[in-house]
């Protein structure tokens, strides 16, 4: 369970998040939607304790990330890139992460197998393609078999087969009662994966509900998104789409 309440983040005098609040519930895939620069990544960074909130709270199972007893067993997170040093091998990267949580070595090979990186485990991360880097980040997130998955633009850099793989994986996680929160600006992709939708624009939540509620009278989630964020009128000069 992820609960965000009254979250404000100011950076260099500019307000990036203006008191946002929403929650992601167990057993459901929650889509966190917004155009580039709307505040999606900033929200996730505060949630993961990477950045400090100016005001408000972002809690996981009722506590801030930094106070989790078993962080890797509670939350798995994929932000942009691989999150790994380019000079290390994929396996060496997963090994140090496993050590930090006291996980057995065998678990490293399990997640490598799970994300389909076993063949590249002995190669340096610097030689990985964009998609392989994302798979490694996914493997890192799954290492502790966490109850909550948090993903920032998970399908970026993945090929169609990778996209289908991740969609299946996320649905499976939710089906087993886990919480999945993913951010994206790819509407078409989201509509097929999510149960709940939260839309953020310019640091404010503009819509929050089930997929059906947010799509509402619009034909598709994409239309609803442009109507909510004003992105469509910006791009088409105010004309009807």
């Amino acid at each position: 369970m992820v609960t965000i309440d009254g979250l404000v983040k100011r950076r260099g005098g500019r307000e990036i998040l203006s008191g946002i609040g929403f929650s992601a519930r167990p057993g459901r895939v929650t889509g966190f939607l917004g155009p580039n620069g709307a505040g999606k990544s900033s929200t996730l960074r505060v949630l993961l304790g990477l950045d400090r909130a100016t005001a408000g709270t972002a809690l996981i199972d009722g506590v801030p990330y930094a106070r989790l007893r078993d962080p890797l067993g509670t939350v798995g997170a994929v932000l942009d890139g691989s999150g790994a040093h380019r000079a290390r091998t994929g396996r060496a990267h997963l090994r140090w992460v496993a050590r930090s949580a006291g996980l057995p070595r065998a678990r490293v090979d399990e997640v490598l197998e799970l994300v389909g990186l076993t063949h590249a485990a002995a190669k340096r991360v610097g030689t990985y393609s964009l998609g392989m880097g994302r798979r490694l980040a996914m493997a890192t997130a799954l290492l502790g078999d966490p109850a909550v998955l948090i993903l920032d633009e998970p399908v970026n850099g993945l090929d169609p087969e990778g996209i289908r793989w991740i969609r299946t994986l996320l649905r499976e996680r939710a089906a087993t009662g886990r919480t999945v929160l993913l951010s994206s600006h790819l509407m078409g992709e989201l509509a097929e994966t999510v149960d709940d939708v939260v839309v953020i624009d310019a640091g404010r939540i503009v819509a929050d509900g089930t997929l059906g509620e947010v799509t509402g009278a619009h034909r598709t989630l994409e239309d609803a998104f442009f109507a909510l964020t004003g992105g469509g009128s910006r791009l088409t000069g105010g004309g009807a789409r």
């Binding site: 942009d80 890139g81 610097g126 880097g133």
Partner: peptide, 9 residues
Amino acid sequence: VTESAESGG
């Protein structure tokens, strides 16, 4: 240089 946090390599 690839050190910048968000350079993505």
